[in-house]
Amino acid sequence: MTDDYLVELQDIHKVFTTRHLLPVDEETRKRRLFKKRDVYAANNVSFGIRRGEVFGLLGPNGAGKTTMVKMISGLVRPDKGQALVDGLNVDKKRKQVLRKVGVVLEGTRTSIWPLTPLENLIYYGMLKDVRGKLLRQRAHDLLDFIGLKDKKNVQVRRLSRGQKQKLAICIALIADPQVLLLDEPSTGLDVQSSRAIKDRIMEMTRDHGRCVLVTTHDMHVAQELCDHIGIINHGKLIACKPTEALLDVFSEQVFVFRTDKAPTVAPFAEIPGVVRADLEQGMDGPALVVHLVPELEARSAALYAVTRQLEHADVRLRAIAQRQQNLENVFLRLTAESDLAESQ
C-alpha cells in the first residue's frame, strides 16, 4: 500500500485539550473553577494520495482539515499513527520530508512584504537549499507560470490579495516539491483569481506529476479540481472516494414537480419506489421534491404514480425536472448524518 501512495496517513489520532476557566456547568448551572475539554482533530484517520492526483479534503470549520495538513508538513505531531511522505515518516525524517513538501497555509502572510516577489522566491529558495542559476531560473519560471511576471519587482505589500496568494503558491513550489499542500487556497479571492489558481494547480499536477492536497470550503472548486475527495467531521474521515463515486453515493434519483398549489406530502411518500418526498416553496410557486429508487422500472412506475396522485389531488402540474446530484448536497447530507450519529 505504501509504495502506491506519495502521501499516506496511517491511523492518525490527535486530540487537543482546551481549558476553560470559570465555565458554567450545563447540568447544575453552577460555575465551576476549571474545565478541560478534548477536541478530536483526527480520530484514526487513514488515507493516501497517489502521484499526479489532486485530493480534496472537505469538512466544516474545526473539523481537523488544517491539522491534517500540519501533520503532513511536520508542524503538528500525531498522538498515534504516522504520516508518510514518499515512504518517509514525517516525524522521524522531518528534514528529508520537508525537502519534498511545499505548503501554503490558510490566512498566513507567508511572504515578506518589504521584499519583491522575486526577492521572496530567492530568499525562500536559499532557505530550502536551492542556489545559483537554478534558483534564479526557477524563480522567473514560476512567476511567469503563475502570472506574476510583470509584478516581479513590485514590493509584496503593494500586491493584491490574489497576487499574494499566487506568490505563496510560488514560494511553496520553489524547491520543486513532489507534494503540494494547499490549505484553503481560494479563500477571499475573486472568481478570476480563484479560477486562475485552480487552473495552475491542475496544470502542475497533470503535467508535472506532483500530488496535491487541497482543503477547501468551496464545493465547486473541489468538484471540478479533485480526483479524490475525503470528507472529515469532528476528526473522523466519514467518506473517502473518487469524486465521481462520491457523487453517486446517494444513488437515488431526485425529481422536482412544480405545481400550482401545495399538495399534501404524506400520500406521495407511501407510493412504492419513492424513498422520500418533501415540499419546497420556490420563487415560482410550490414544488414537490421526490426521491426515487435508482432501478429504472420501479422508478418509471413511481414517476407515473406520482403524476396520477397529483391529478387525483386536483393539483395542476406545471413542470417536471430531474435534480442533478452535486458535491454540496453530498457533503451536507454526510456531515448532517455524522452530526446526528455523534449526538446519539
Partner: peptide, 17 residues
C-alpha cells in the same frame, strides 16, 4: 505574520534559522 511557520518548515530547522 505567518513567516514563523515557513521557518519551521525549512529543512534546516527552527534553531538554525
Amino acid at each position: 505574520t505567518g513567516v514563523l511557520e515557513q521557518l519551521c518548515m525549512s529543512p534546516h530547522g527552527l534553531a538554525v534559522n
